[in-house]
Design a protein around this nucleic acid. Structure first.
Length: 271
DNA sequence: AGACAGACCTGTGAGC
DNA sequence: TGCTCACAGGTCTGTC
């Protein structure tokens, strides 16, 4: 499942072979994604050249002459480059054929992702305009979290996962950051202290940076050719470990539902 | 405006 | 073994 680190890894991986390339053909095999693939996609793209690829939150931005492709990988999407002529597999929904002999191929079993075209400034688009700061930027800090969370009664975990507060912190990273910071995920956001917000911001940034450094290892759905789970899974302290002993103190990891999401935490280490 | 429920989709794994 | 079914996940929409 692409979390922010995987989206960033995708961007870095495909950029060298996509930037500056002309689109020669667009093939849509399955238009029914989270939002339908626009019928005019080929019309918009063919003959255009891609500019410098960017990322905002979990969105990839692919610039063309008068706008941007806005691509979201959803929960199971991947964007890869394959040589022209590579036969599509099941769930290979969209191909963007490039002049250099490569195909930018979108694969998404659960079809939670989407691709759309935004004319003009993409950051003015409703999907991007309300987003909070990037977790690895200077705009994100403990002070920012502290200021945003005052008087908020929602639990700190769903607060952290709210894109308006900080982007790219999904269920897994929110759980891990809260463990690292020693904060109980059920606490009302407004009651988390300034010092705890500082620890939380540092924890969220460092766990995301570590995951990017590992190449955005998938954490759950990923299974290698040898059937082994993702590498980063070994680093998880609480996520998916309900009922198991805490690695720090040995107490049992609790699991419950917060904001409609499974949440795991150590009731002894996290107060 | 904040809080929360529901919808979207399908592979996986548990239970029968 | 084969079937059913709940669950996971991010984000948008709708309701209170």
């Amino acid at each position: 499942m692409p979390e922010l680190p995987e989206v960033e890894t995708t961007r870095r991986g495909i950029a060298p072979l996509v930037e500056g390339q002309e689109v020669t053909e667009v093939i849509v095999r399955q238009p029914r994604l989270r939002t339908p693939v626009p019928g005019e996609l080929a019309e918009w793209l063919v003959g255009q050249r891609f500019g410098t690829l960017a990322r905002r939150a979990k969105y990839l931005l692919l610039p063309i002459a008068d706008g941007h492709l806005l691509w979201h990988l959803g929960m199971s999407g991947s964007l890869r480059l394959v040589p022209i002529g590579t036969p599509p597999r099941t769930h290979d929904h969209v191909d963007v054929v490039l002049g250099n002999g490569h195909v930018l191929r979108y694969h998404d079993p659960r079809r939670f992702g989407f691709v759309d075209f935004v004319r003009g400034d993409p950051h003015a688009d409703t999907r991007l305009a309300r987003l909070g700061p990037e977790p690895l930027s200077d705009a994100f800090s403990g002070e920012h979290l502290f200021a945003r969370s005052r008087k908020r009664r929602v639990a700190i975990k769903p607060f952290l996962m709210d894109n308006a507060n900080v982007v790219g912190v999904g269920n897994i990273y929110a759980s891990e950051a809260l463990f690292m910071a020693g904060v109980d995920p059920r606490r009302p956001a407004g009651e988390v202290t300034r010092e705890e917000c500082e620890r939380l911001a540092n924890a969220a940034s460092s766990v995301l940076a570590a995951a990017i450094a590992q190449g955005g290892t998938t954490l759950r759905d990923f299974v290698g050719g040898d059937g082994k789970p993702g590498y980063f899974a070994q680093s998880l302290n609480v996520y998916g470990r309900g009922g198991e002993p805490c690695r720090e103190c040995g107490h049992e990891i609790m699991s419950l539902v917060l904001g409609q999401r499974a949440s795991c935490f150590c009731p002894y280490c996290q107060r």
